[in-house]
């Protein structure tokens, strides 16, 4: 993270790049989509980050599924809100195929970097997208590609682990 840049905005956001702060200040595409074709819910409020992604999917002229609209609802820190917003920007208008290629590194790059301790927020954003697409496949009763199924399994597994870890606190 370039120190020179962060000075410009003159806030305690020395931790975050100007792009992160700008995105946090004015996040894009937040809110619900009514009758969404897919919803991805990730994170855990106990850990302090919860991200919900809604997608609207339609077919383009080539008969490919593409994400016509995407919105997010996030409870979380600056990084969680910024990664939520940026993934909606990255995904909007892309085909499902293209969207699933987006990695956490793409998210981090698009934000001009993230503090290491906040990398998990970029993972969360990508996971939310995967889950939303997975949900879309389920709802539309389409055959789920093996790669997507695998990603979904991994997300589900880590979710279970976290939930177990925080069980003691929930009581």
């Amino acid at each position: 993270m370039a120190k020179k840049n962060t000075k410009k905005i003159n806030t305690c956001a020395g931790l975050y790049t100007p792009k992160v702060m700008e995105t946090f200040k004015n996040p894009h595409n937040y809110g619900k989509i009514k009758n969404a074709d897919g919803i991805g819910k990730v994170g855990n409020i106990v850990c302090g980050d919860v991200m919900w992604l809604y997608i609207k999917v339609v077919q383009n002229k080539k008969k490919e599924d593409f994400i016509k609209d995407i919105k997010f609802e996030t409870f979380g820190c600056v990084a969680a809100i910024s990664t939520s917003s940026i993934i909606t920007d990255l995904v909007k208008g892309k085909t499902i195929k293209e969207a699933l290629k987006i990695t956490k590194d793409n998210v981090i790059e698009s934000l001009g970097g993230l503090p290491k301790i906040k990398y998990h927020c970029s993972v969360l954003a990508v996971d939310a997208l995967v889950e939303a697409v997975y949900d879309y496949f389920l709802k539309s009763k389409k055959e789920i590609p093996a790669g997507l199924e695998k990603k979904h399994e991994i997300i589900k597994k880590s979710k279970d682990i976290i939930e177990k870890r925080y069980e003691k606190w929930e009581k």
């Binding site: 806030t11 305690c12 702060m21 946090f24 409870f75 979380g76 820190c77 600056v78 969680a80 809100i81």
Partner: peptide, 9 residues
């Protein structure tokens, strides 16, 4: 339903 860091920032 408010996260602290967001609030502070």
């Amino acid at each position: 339903f408010v996260e602290g860091e967001s609030l502070i920032m």
